[in-house]
């Protein structure tokens, strides 16, 4: 076990249990904070995978923007009376957990059946600047159309979110 392996295990456990806490804690504010921990853990995993630029973007966009947006929206609501945080019904709960377990077992078995030989980790260029440059070259040459479409999507979302949240609420209010 080298240092990077120990880092992976710490980050993986943190990320997984923070993710479980997101869905297990009844108070949504604590859920948002656990979501922030999960996002930071995922950014750390990206660092262990040597995707430095993606890790930075993950920290800025998710841990910065998206989680803060969740917390800001939670501040608008009065959630003290939220008693029924979980869905009711023993049978449906067993069905939901059981079907999730079946999906998880099938994914695990697929992973262990297909990835039998361990892929060799080739030595790649670990210079962060060079890696980011390669990413930018691909993004602005091969994928420039998708990049522009994403720009239009974000503009539409900007206008749409304001229009949705500004109305009186409901379409027939």
């Amino acid at each position: 076990m080298s240092l990077i392996d120990i880092t992976f295990y710490i980050l993986a456990l943190t990320t997984f249990f923070a993710g479980v806490a997101v869905i297990a804690i009844p108070n949504p504010v604590y859920s948002a904070l656990c979501l922030a921990i999960t996002m930071i853990g995922v950014a750390g995993l990206f660092f262990t995978l040597e995707a430095y630029f993606i890790a930075g973007v993950q920290l800025i966009v998710y841990a910065g923007a998206v989680v803060i947006m969740f917390v800001m929206v939670l501040m608008l609501f009065d959630l003290k009376h939220e008693k029924k945080a979980f869905s009711k019904g023993l049978f449906s709960m067993i069905l939901k957990i059981g079907s999730s377990a079946v999906v998880l077992a099938s994914i695990f078995s697929a992973i262990y059946l297909t990835i039998s030989a361990k892929p060799r980790l080739e030595e790649v260029n670990t210079d962060a600047i060079v890696a980011a440059k390669g990413l930018a070259l691909q993004l602005f040459t091969k994928n420039v159309f998708a990049f522009e479409v994403i720009g239009i999507l974000l503009l539409v979302v900007l206008v749409g979110a304001i229009a949705l949240a500004k109305g009186k609420g409901g379409t027939h209010a």
Binding site: F8, A12, T48, V73, S87, I111, Y112, I115
Partner: peptide, 28 residues
């Protein structure tokens, strides 16, 4: 740590998300 470790972690997190969608009632 190899590729399968990352895939297993990813699958586990994905299932946690699925269970959150299924069992929680709060939209946020």
């Amino acid at each position: 740590v190899g590729l399968s470790h990352y895939l297993v972690l990813s699958a586990a997190l994905f299932i946690v998300g699925i269970m959150g969608v299924l069992i929680r009632k709060n939209t946020i």
